[in-house]
Design a protein around this nucleic acid. Sequence first.
DNA 1: TCTCATTGTTTCAAGTATAAAGTTTCTAAT
DNA 2: ATTAGAAACTTTATACTTGAAACAATGAGA
Lengths: 158, 158
Amino acid sequence: MAEELLFEDEPMARQRLRLWLQMLKSVRHVEGVLRERLREGHNMTLSRFDVLAALHAAPDGMKMSELSQHLVVSNGNVTGVVDRLAKDGLVQRAPSPHDRRAFVVSVTPEGREKMDQMVREHLAWIDSLMSHVSEPDVARAISVMLDIRQKPDRPSDT
Amino acid sequence: MAEELLFEDEPMARQRLRLWLQMLKSVRHVEGVLRERLREGHNMTLSRFDVLAALHAAPDGMKMSELSQHLVVSNGNVTGVVDRLAKDGLVQRAPSPHDRRAFVVSVTPEGREKMDQMVREHLAWIDSLMSHVSEPDVARAISVMLDIRQKPDRPSDT
DNA sequence: TCTCATTGTTTCAAGTATAAAGTTTCTAAT
DNA sequence: ATTAGAAACTTTATACTTGAAACAATGAGA
């Protein structure tokens, strides 16, 4: 079988692949650092923190489905993490007043108190981990991340 | 307790946090697409693919520990994934000639044949998913990802 | 040679994650 | 008012992932 032509510009494709691999590595690196510090300092896991942080920033709570979309994880995942957080008294589920299928999850006072401090530390950790990234590079990288989530216009994508 | 001064430049810290959150979302988005396509098209999971791809690019194989460092995952994780890949006949473990504690893992002929095609498709998927990111932005973003993994020089980091 | 901290790997328990299937409720169009 | 389809959520099975503990092998220094 002859070599098929799959790419208009293969060097460009390879460069994009390089970016993808570097993104993966950097995300895993930062996650590792965060995981360790949350565990050591707060007896907290990263996925619990992610859920708590989203709720901490949402004064009126969020629906389960809003949480899973915001965090880009499955519904079943959110169900499990919220279950554990609720068992620890850090979040609470309330029936949605408008939709009897839905729940509004929110941080409890205890959870909020814990998070006020943790969110602050987390911000400092991220700032420090990214201290080598300059202001214009941060802005540019944010816009690249947003571009990646645009729908692709290439035919090879469904 | 009075508000402590934790940041020289809090707006900059918040901007870096924004970047971090966007990185997380984009990585999870791309992972979701890759996961689905690998499952539908090749009955393959993403973590198995990641290991296979690393080995596919390493003609002489890799040690377990090299794999876990390269992929930024734990040793125990690699042990499990390699076990499953070996059971499926896609990779093989050989004792290291230089170190009796170590194994050299490599792709089997069957694994290589499968991967030759899959790697090509994977490249096309990534290229398509990132088609909105221009050449200079890709280059810049790669360098940002590398910067993130430099040791931080700020005091708040251990 | 002995010793001992380190390295390479596996094992295990607990937690995280997905996909698919199931339940209930909602909505829109008859 | 009925009904079909979609949406919100949970449940289940399976797989992944980590951190810590265990073990053997290494290597550097006494």
